[in-house]
């Protein structure tokens, strides 16, 4: 009985105080957050990454520019004192859309022959090709004009100058 009283009177309070002291030594979430903010300033890979801390668990959200940046951000946070776990929910920034393909203009060498092929069934039509510009002279039936044009436009000319007389 006396032994029990000694335990409850001396040891138990000592244990409780020790536990309180120990727990107060653990970094608070706000300290972790401050550390993350400090690291962020010197870690460009963390631009766009948002970190939230709850009971020592850090959750990363936002956008990382690539896998390497994602790994660096995760590692930088993991080593902070007091961090128990890092949940990395960062998404990768989608790559920018490719720039529009430049306009392809056929060189005169194949173009001249291809225009001749495309116009050969229209006896009244004369064609001339210079620097990618197709100039059409002569005459054509109205009914044939669209078909001829549809053919010529697939040859990748720079421009089609239609001077045809339409009958």
């Amino acid at each position: 009985m006396r032994k029990y009283q000694w335990f409850s009177g001396r040891i138990l309070p000592a244990i409780v105080i020790a536990m309180l002291l120990l727990s107060s030594c653990k970094p608070k979430d706000s300290d972790i957050q401050a550390s993350i903010d400090a690291i962020r300033k010197t870690t460009p890979e963390m631009t766009g990454v948002v970190a939230s801390v709850s009971q020592g668990v850090v959750t990363l959200t936002g956008e990382c520019k690539d896998d390497a940046a994602k790994a660096i951000s995760e590692k930088a946070v993991t080593v902070i004192k007091g961090v128990k776990q890092v949940i990395d929910n960062c998404t990768l920034t989608p790559p920018p859309p490719p720039p529009p393909a430049s306009v392809v203009i056929a060189p005169d060498d194949p173009l001249t022959k291809e225009v001749a092929d495309a116009t050969k069934d229209y006896p009244g039509v004369h064609s001339d090709v210079k620097d990618g510009v197709v100039t059409l002279t002569g005459e054509i039936k109205r009914a044939d004009l669209k078909t001829l044009m549809m053919g010529l436009h697939t040859l990748k000319p720079k421009k089609i100058d239609n001077q045809l007389t339409i009958k």
Binding site: L145, M149, H153, T154, K156, P157, K158, K159, I160, D161, N162, I166
Partner: peptide, 11 residues
Amino acid sequence: DFRSGDVVMNI
């Protein structure tokens, strides 16, 4: 009559 010569439509 496709006169303007300001389009090249390759479809």
